[in-house]
C-alpha cells in the first residue's frame, strides 16, 4: 500500500521550495526519468492479454487487482524495436489524466531529487527518439538522465479522451 509521500511541496503556493523528485529507469543503454508523482506502483512483468489490431508498442492489458490496465513497451514507443520481456523486466504503473497505464522498462534505477533549476532543456540534436517525448535533461554526476513527457508519449491514448468519462 502507498506510504504517505513526504516530499517537498510543489503546490502553487510554494514558489520557493523548488526541488522535485523523479524515478529513473533504464531502457537499453539509456537512463530515463519520470515525475514521481505520476507513479502509482512498480511491479514485475507478467504476460498480458493482447488487444487486437493495436500499434505494436501497445502490449495488451493486465489485471491489476480487478482493474484492467493497458501496458506499453517504452522501447518500442521510442522506435527502438520490441522488448523481449522476461520476469526480470519491470512495469511502472503511472496515472496520467485520470487513467492508469503501465510502462514496460528494463529496470528501475533510482529516485532522483533535483533542483528544478538544474533541469536543462533538450538540445535540438539529431537522435533516434522523437523530441516531443522528451521534457528535459537532468545532469547526474558525469552522466545525464532524460526526463520524459508522459503526456506526449501517450497523447493519443489519454488525458484528452479521459476527460469525457469523468
Amino acid at each position: 500500500m502507498a506510504e504517505p509521500l513526504d516530499l517537498p511541496s510543489i503546490g502553487p503556493d510554494a514558489a520557493t521550495a523548488q526541488t522535485r523528485q523523479f524515478i529513473s529507469f533504464r531502457v537499453g543503454e539509456d537512463e530515463f526519468a519520470i515525475d514521481i508523482m505520476a507513479v502509482r506502483e512498480i511491479k514485475g512483468w507478467t504476460e498480458t492479454t493482447v488487444l487486437p489490431n493495436q500499434q505494436d508498442y501497445m502490449l495488451g492489458v493486465l489485471n491489476l487487482r480487478g482493474t484492467i490496465v493497458p501496458i506499453f513497451d517504452l522501447r518500442c514507443r521510442f522506435g527502438l524495436g520490441l522488448t523481449t520481456a522476461t520476469r526480470s523486466h519491470v512495469v511502472i504503473i503511472v496515472a496520467i489524466g485520470g487513467r492508469l497505464l503501465g510502462l514496460l522498462v528494463d529496470a528501475v534505477s533510482d529516485i532522483l531529487t533535483v533542483n528544478a533549476a538544474d533541469i536543462r532543456p533538450v538540445p535540438d540534436v539529431d537522435q533516434p527518439i522523437d523530441n516531443a517525448f522528451l521534457a528535459g535533461i537532468i545532469p547526474v554526476g558525469d552522466s545525464m538522465v532524460v526526463l520524459l513527457s508522459l503526456e506526449n508519449l501517450f497523447a493519443n491514448h489519454g488525458p484528452a479522451n479521459a476527460a469525457i468519462a469523468a
Binding site: P4, L5, D6, L7, P8, S9, I10, G11, P12, D13, A14, I36, M37, A95, G97, G98, P159, A166
Partner: peptide
C-alpha cells in the same frame, strides 16, 4: 495554511507531495 489547485488532476498532483 491554504494551497490551491484548479482541477482534480492538479489537486492529485499537490496531494501526492503534500499532506
Amino acid at each position: 495554511d491554504v494551497l490551491e489547485a484548479e482541477d482534480g488532476v492538479k489537486a492529485l498532483g499537490v496531494l501526492a507531495s503534500t499532506r
